[in-house]
């Protein structure tokens, strides 16, 4: 009888534990699968944004609704599920469509010009504008100063001051 009660207690404890842990495990499994799916979706999106749609004007594979872009996204997903890396998948498309499929030209060879020239243009253009503005300000300040000293009131005060100086000298002598 005692043994039966112990067994029953053990079974009840086990049942309670099972009742609590099973839903927790299910929720954990769902969350994990969602995050894995979410992770793949993010990867698909990331890679799709790096590739230009071959049949569209200036749209990436991520942005385009064309049938080809949709098929390319499906292929990206297949390859990710097979375990291929981002670089391998991008190389796959480049090997078939050429480097023009890339959203940004790779920084190699003459392509460096595309990366450097805008920055240099901005630098020199900005320097030119800064120098021009500085020069304009200096000219403006000069004209302002000149204008102040040419005003009749200032001229009158100067004459008065000159006369005051003369009289002070006479007084001192």
């Amino acid at each position: 009888m005692g043994i039966d009660l112990k067994m029953i207690r053990k079974i009840n404890i086990f049942r309670k534990a099972f009742a609590f842990t099973t839903p927790a495990l299910i929720i954990l499994a769902l969350l994990t699968s969602n995050s894995i799916a979410g992770n793949i979706d993010n990867q698909i999106r990331e890679i799709s944004y790096l590739l230009m749609c071959p049949v569209c004007q200036g749209q990436t594979v991520a942005e385009s609704n064309s049938e080809l872009a949709t098929q390319m996204r499906a292929i990206i997903k297949q390859k990710l599920e097979k375990g291929e890396s981002k670089q391998e998948i991008i190389a796959y498309f480049v090997n078939r469509y050429g480097e023009t499929i890339l959203g940004a030209p790779p920084p190699k060879g003459a392509n460096w010009l595309i990366w450097i020239l805008p920055a240099l243009a901005l630098l020199f253009g900005g320097a030119g504008i800064a120098i021009f503005l500085h020069k304009s300000k200096s000219e403006k300040d000069k004209r302002k100063t000149k204008a102040i000293f040419n005003e009749p009131q200032v001229q009158a005060e100067s004459k008065y001051l000159e006369k005051l100086d003369e009289e002070l000298k006479e007084f001192e002598s």
């Binding site: 020239l117 030119g128 120098i131």
Partner: peptide
């Protein structure tokens, strides 16, 4: 100032030239 602006324009034109006539895979 003039040289800087001229250089900036030349650089932009070079970029445009490369975009149009450069070695592109297409």
């Amino acid at each position: 100032t003039k040289l800087s602006v001229l250089l900036a324009i030349l650089l932009l034109l070079s970029l445009l030239g490369y975009a149009i006539f450069g070695n592109r895979v297409f």
